[in-house]
């Protein structure tokens, strides 16, 4: 399904000193730092898998999701997903995937959710019967019916995230990227989101790659984790093994220890 081989990406970041003088100087003379966001990242994910992608802030999680979803072009390496090079055949490729950024919305702010859904149906050219089927299923499993006709801006964060995830599945993608889907959610909403991801994965063999800082997400959804730090894949394997090895009982402690071990 997903295969990355030696993917690398370096960003040029403008360096700027403190104060007005430095700001003025930067107008004429720019200094750049090179930040190695991804450093020969390789892994593969099979169809129907759920993979937890973890690592501290700035480790390269979002950058790799952007590469895999075709937003960014990597500097080196190969990335093949469902037979596509994501950034080359962008339009054909993105039709097959769903992407949720927990901190950004893909829905229209001022109109009822259902209107956004219908525009998405048209953007993805989803045939009406398929759309109706998906909408029915998503409305039931995500419990959306109470607020389908409410504008996005009036929804709670939990309702919004459910609507976001539903929106990304209306066109029946085979692969779903979730970038921090539970960020800021209260406990019932978190449980609902997790329950839904499990259910949809079991029913449709949807492949899911999710990033999160909440290790309970991982615990509830999958045993396979990818640990990334400073742009490198540090660990690719079973979460249960790490738990056993550390002997800690609380998942947060396990992860904190893991980060310490790799000096992240």
């Amino acid at each position: 399904m997903i295969e990355l081989k030696g993917v690398g990406k370096t960003f040029k970041v403008a360096r700027r000193g403190k104060g007005t003088l430095a700001a003025l100087q930067s107008l004429f003379h720019r200094q750049y730092d090179l930040v190695r966001a991804l450093d020969s990242v390789s892994f593969r994910v099979d169809e129907g898998e759920i993979v937890g992608y973890i690592g501290p802030n700035g480790a390269g999680k979002s950058t790799s999701i952007k590469v895999m979803s075709g937003i960014l072009v990597p500097d080196e390496g190969d990335c093949e997903i469902m037979g596509f090079a994501p950034w080359k055949q962008r339009r054909e490729y993105v039709r097959q995937i769903g992407v949720v950024f927990g901190q950004r919305t893909q829905l229209w702010w001022d109109v009822p959710i259902i209107d956004s859904f219908e525009l998405l149906r048209d953007i993805y050219s989803v045939p009406q019967p398929e759309y109706a089927r998906n909408l029915e299923l998503l409305t039931q499993t995500m419990d959306l019916s109470a607020f389908l006709r409410t504008p996005l801006r009036q929804l709670s964060l939990g309702q919004r995230m459910r609507a976001e995830i539903a929106a990304s599945l209306l066109h029946s993608p085979k692969l779903l990227f979730l970038d921090e889907p539970t960020i800021g959610l209260d406990a019932p909403s978190k449980l609902a989101v997790r329950q839904f991801i499990r259910q949809i994965n079991a029913e449709t063999k949807l492949t899911v790659l999710l990033t999160t800082h909440d290790m309970n997400d991982i615990d509830a959804l999958t045993d396979r984790i990818l640990l990334i730090g400073k742009g490198k894949i540090l660990y690719d394997g079973a979460f249960s093994q790490i738990k056993q090895r550390s002997g800690q009982s609380a998942v947060e402690e396990v992860i904190a220890e893991l980060y310490r071990e790799y000096a992240l």
Binding site: S69, G70, E92, R95, F101, Q106, I123, Y124
Partner: peptide, 13 residues
């Protein structure tokens, strides 16, 4: 605001 990301994620020009 990073909204161009979303534009690239949709199967349209």
């Amino acid at each position: 605001r990073g909204e161009f990301d979303r534009v690239l994620l949709r199967p349209r020009g």
